[in-house]
Design a protein around this nucleic acid. Structure first.
Lengths: 200, 200
DNA sequence: GTCTATAAATGGATAGAC
DNA sequence: GTCTATCCATTTATAGAC
């Protein structure tokens, strides 16, 4: 069961908990019950392993993007309950997705020293999700569900609320369901209040 | 000029750029033009140095808290321009303060493995500033400057906007004035729009 | 494709001279 | 309070057997 995929999964798990410099190749191999030379058969070096992980998350981002695109169909009107439900769903299914969440932890460390990691990080937690939010808010504006915002402020404030709830409660512990529930509760409250401010 | 304070400053600078595990005692001493044994005269070990840094930031948090308390005097009314100005000031003088900013970077890494660091981090970027925001919003509600929020949602959304602007633009590069200006511009737009929604 | 063994470098930490 | 010198553990990475 020790294929390349599994090695990457274990490496990601460890890297997300301490950052790549604090995790030795020995640590990874220990968790895999393998010797270092076995891992070096699959990956040129530690950086090569990191690069393979970056490619994995880039692929996942695109999968997620198209999933959002397909799910995207604004109804004839959006009630506050629907808005809250969709927002919590986004938090749970995207940011709190175990793999996404581990990448967020890992990349938030790596990006300080690795510009490639920084790019991936920005795409993962800003670029892609913000684009999706802006798309939805544009449509809601057009259909007069919400007030007209100067620029993209509503979409950005909306996403800031969700990302902040994630950072404050879940970051680094996506498997702690109590933490996830706290974040969901926070998003519920704040999105409900925010939506009632901008709703027409 | 190589007193304990200076050693801490240089260590903080390096730790904030890569995290403590990625910075060796040798690196720190190299930057100080000192031998390791000189540093070990002042600090028992690497962890002792880290602990001294945590104490420094805890002290700074309290200094900042009382500075906010003293500056705190809500006028007879708060115009949108005043609100924007205060918000940008908070971003620039607190989150973008070079020492605070370096601690944010460093602690965001350390907290994954060090629960003490996690506590300090939460106090620095959530507990203390949120308390201050909630205090101000409470007064503004009482004086009917803003609508009545269910719970503390307005204060929390307000702070989410500012923290998000910091994270998105400044994190890890507080000395990049272009990045700081971008964050300030973002806060200006979004706070202006948010305040106009809640203002009475 | 995984193992044993080992090389070469780096890291934390201390002893003892000045 | 800082320096030289050194110790020992850990780490990345490779060679060669199976």
């Amino acid at each position: 069961m020790n294929n390349k995929e599994n090695m990457l999964a274990v490496a990601l798990d460890l890297f997300s908990k301490k950052g790549s410099t604090a995790v030795s190749v020995r640590d990874i191999c220990g968790a895999l019950n393998l010797k270092e030379s076995a891992l070096y058969y699959h990956f040129k070096n530690k950086q090569d392993l990191l690069d393979a992980l970056y490619q994995q998350i880039l692929d996942l981002i695109e999968t997620m993007r198209s999933r959002f695109d397909n799910a995207f169909a604004v109804a004839t009107s959006v009630s506050t309950e629907e808005m809250v439900m969709v927002s919590c769903g986004f938090l749970k299914n995207y940011l709190c997705n175990p793999m996404v969440s581990k990448f967020i932890s890992m990349l938030s460390i790596e990006r300080l020293t690795d510009s490639k990691a920084n790019e991936v990080y920005n795409k993962l937690i800003y670029k892609m999700p913000l684009e999706q939010c802006e798309k939805v808010f544009n449509q809601m504006e057009d259909r007069k569900f919400v007030k007209k915002s100067a620029g993209k402020n509503y979409a950005q404030i909306y996403y800031a609320i969700i990302l902040n709830a994630y950072n404050q409660n879940v970051y680094g512990q996506c498997e702690n369901s109590e933490a996830v529930e706290k974040a969901v509760a926070q998003v519920s409250c704040q999105i409900e209040e925010f939506y009632s401010l901008i709703r027409i």
